[in-house]
Structures are given as structure tokens and as C-alpha cells.
Design a protein around this nucleic acid. Structure first.
Lengths: 228, 228
DNA sequence: ACTCTTTCGCTACGAGTCGTAGCGTAACTG
DNA sequence: CAGTTACGCTACGACTCGTAGCGAAAGAGT
């Protein structure tokens, strides 16, 4: 989570909340000075309360009124910052994914298994389970939400694949990229495969991610050739 | 869709609707005879209206009242058959998956690519997009719904993987199974990988499934060894 | 034909949620 | 200090879910 800005949804180019109406369309920066500033503490309290409510009550059980009272804030304050429940949850959940890291353990296999294990742990958390699929489902109808999900949650995690590939190429385990376009497509395929498979295993099939499963899945990814 | 039975949710062991209260707990079968029978035409009209409403309005836009009036039926009639919106949509959507078939085109690669293409077409339909992730999301909180989703949608499709594997083994492309348990786990992994990856690509990343993508994904599944 | 049972459509209702409007007050800037 | 903005509170309209009660219809069994 970046520095407390007047509005949440940090790096997105899409303003998450209804513009403050009046102020001149002056460019970004520190051009904000008049009147009572928004409480950064309220921002944090709201996001924390959102995650807690998601974990306890699930997506359908979490209501805006509940989040507000749990955060010690009026419901109108929520709507001054986020236009709807969906956008609020994106911001509240996106930070959970920032903990994922590519470890560089010395072999592609070890790196993949470590990332899969991290992702499995993340998907085992109640707030993630309660919100991730619901968010994706809402994103199907709401194009703007879909974009924000990709910008805040999906795309940033592709760095893991890029880092892992780069490390493997440096070690000589993978050949260098021939052209950039092909490399980008391959990153996309690998990312969709790892993220989609683990999500499907945990959230749809409802089976746990065991070390044995991770090993077999990595076998599949690396192919019989590179297995040894 | 199986023969019109008094209650929908055909093969499930969980009765989808509230039990008729009075009748003796006689075992299943054709033991149902008294009073006015339920209209099978209403069942079909409701399920059709559900799919249409899903395609037009999406999950959130589809309401029980809307489905009822579109089907020419009272809202109470819906609730006599299905206890909630979730269960209704499971039954309405499950039949869409029955069209998937394993073609047996003479090579494992061709078979995989054909099934992926079929699944991609299914996921491109508006009613599938509107309902699948929403259903999965609801299944996270509702254990009974989760079971019904697996029974009606997920598990039946694993037959495709089993058939494809069996055909490839008959051709000599794959080695025979050593033990049943290991084979079952491998079927699960392959199923989660194909279903999860294609769903993630289409529904989350929002990118189309092109023949080129299918080829590269199949490369990944088969491994560099079997590629040629 | 007659009765009995169950379903049917209809209307109305309680409970809950979303998102907004209006108010007086608090906080910060120049 | 005045001006501007955010804040908490209450209330509201619109909507949905799922249920209850009614008289009428449609079959089954005798």
C-alpha cells in the first residue's frame, strides 16, 4: 500500500471515487490544499474493516453499513471515497497480493514450487476466498471494475513470472527470448496456467495444495525433459 | 437434461427443493402419484427463461421476479421447485456443459486442442460468462451449493480427461497407469490445469482463445519432448 | 361422477441492502 | 479570522429476496 493519498486506488489511472466535483482540473501532484483534509486514518480503518468483514461474513454477508460501523465511520464517508462495494474490495484485497515474491532459490523447479506454495497460502486465507471469485464475477459485467482488477491485482503479479524466467535464463535453464512479443505471450500463458490452475484447484475443486500436488504440477509445467 | 422428474436437479442425491412436507418417507422411484402433478412445461420454461435472463442481464441483473414473469409463471412456483436463485442457476447452467465431447481425432495433441476449443466456445457464451464465476463465488460460502456444483458441473466433465487419456494410452502415446490412485490424481491435475487456465484466460485476463494460443498451451501440457 | 390432494397464479408483506440527500459540526488553510 | 472541505448522523426511495394466505384449477383414486 503506497503512501496515504487523498484518494485510495493508488497507482490506477482511473480515479476510484467520484471526483471532488469543484476543484480545477489541475494536474496531479501535491496540488491539494484547501479545506479539511481527508483522514488517512479513516482510509486505513475502512480497508482493515473491509478485510475483517470479508473474512468473517464473506462477500454477501459484508455490507457497507457493517464496514462503516466497524471502522467507526459514517456510511457516507465510505461512499465519498469509493463509488461502490466492488471498488472498495478491490483496494482492500489488492494489498494482500503484494506479499508474493519470487525467491530465486537456484533452480527453476524450486522457484516455481515456492511461488505456488505462497499463492496457495494466500488462497487459503478467508478474506481471499471470500472476495477473489466474487470480484472476478462482478468484473465480468462491469468493464471498469474489470480494468481495475487487472491493474491492481492481476497484472502486477506477472512480474513474478518475468523474474522467474529471467533468473532461469541467467542460469541457462531456459533459452533466451527470440523476440519481445513472443516472450510476452509466453509470460501470459504461464501466468494464466499457474494462477488459473491453483485457483481452480483450491476454490472450485475444493482440494488442498499439498507439497506432492505442487511437485506433480511442476512436473507438468517443466515437461518430462527438464524433470530431472 | 434428463427426463422430466417431479423435482429438478436430476442425479443429485441432494433434493434441490424443499421436500413436499407430508408424504411418507418412502424411498425414491415412481412412488409419486397423488394430487395435481407439477407441470413439466413450467420446468422447461423456467430453465430457459433463466438462461435467457442470465445472458441478457447478467447474474446481478437477473431477478427471480423477472425469470418468473418471463417464463409465464408465478414467482411462488419458482420457489416451490428451487430453494434459491443459486440452485436454480446451477440446474440452468449445468446442461450447457453436456455438449462437450472428447472427439478422438487420432492424436493426443489434436484431442486436447479440440476440447480446449470447445471449452473456449462455451466460455464465450454470455450465459456462461454471467453465471459460472458467480456460481463458483457463491459456492465458496454455501457448502451445499459447492457440492451441487461439483456434482452437476465439475465432476461430470472429468470424463473428458479420462477418455482422452485412455485413447492416448491405447495409441501408445502415454504409458499405462501404474496404480489407480496415482491415475486419479493425475486426472485431477490435468483437469484443473485445463479448466482453470482457460477460465482464467477468458474470464479474468479477458483475452480470447486463439488457435495460436491453444497450440502454445498444448505445447506446455505435452512438454517439449512430445511436441513433435 | 365424486372427492381428495396437490399445484397454480395472484397479491401482499417483512426484512434487508444499496446508494443518496440534507443537516449541523469539526478540521484545516491562507 | 473567514472560507472551504470533510465528517457523523438521520432519514429516505428503490429494489430484491423469500414467505404467507387466498381461491381456483388439474389431475388421481374410488
Amino acid at each position: 500500500m503506497p503512501a496515504p493519498q487523498p484518494h485510495p486506488s493508488p497507482e490506477s489511472t482511473v480515479p476510484p471515487c467520484t471526483a471532488p466535483a469543484s476543484p480545477a482540473p489541475e494536474a496531479a501532484g501535491a496540488a491539494r490544499a484547501k479545506g479539511r483534509p481527508r483522514s488517512a486514518a479513516a482510509d486505513r480503518a475502512i480497508l482493515d474493516a473491509t478485510r475483517e468483514a470479508l473474512a468473517e461474513l464473506g462477500w454477501g454477508g459484508m455490507t457497507m453499513g457493517h464496514v462503516a460501523s466497524r471502522a467507526g465511520v459514517a456510511k457516507t464517508t465510505l461512499y465519498r471515497r469509493w463509488p461502490s462495494k466492488n471498488e472498495l474490495v478491490v483496494d482492500a484485497v489488492a494489498t494482500l497480493f503484494d506479499d508474493l515474491v519470487m525467491p530465486d532459490l537456484g533452480s527453476l523447479r524450486a522457484d516455481i514450487e515456492a511461488v505456488v506454495a505462497q499463492f496457495a497460502d494466500l488462497l487459503a486465507r478467508p478474506e481471499t476466498q471470500a472476495s477473489l471469485l466474487a470480484l472476478f464475477a462482478e468484473g465480468i459485467r462491469d468493464r471498469q471494475l474489470h480494468r481495475r482488477i487487472r491493474e491492481a491485482i492481476v497484472d502486477p503479479q506477472k512480474r513474478l513470472v518475468r523474474q522467474g524466467r529471467a533468473a532461469a535464463q541467467a542460469r541457462g535453464e531456459l533459452e533466451a527470448d527470440t523476440d519481445a512479443e513472443s516472450a510476452r505471450e509466453e509470460v501470459d500463458i504461464i501466468f494464466d496456467t499457474i494462477a488459473g490452475t491453483v485457483e481452480h484447484r483450491v476454490l472450485v475443486s475444493g482440494e488442498p495444495i499439498t507439497p506432492d500436488w505442487t511437485r506433480r504440477f511442476t512436473d507438468l509445467l517443466l515437461g518430462p525433459l527438464t524433470t530431472c
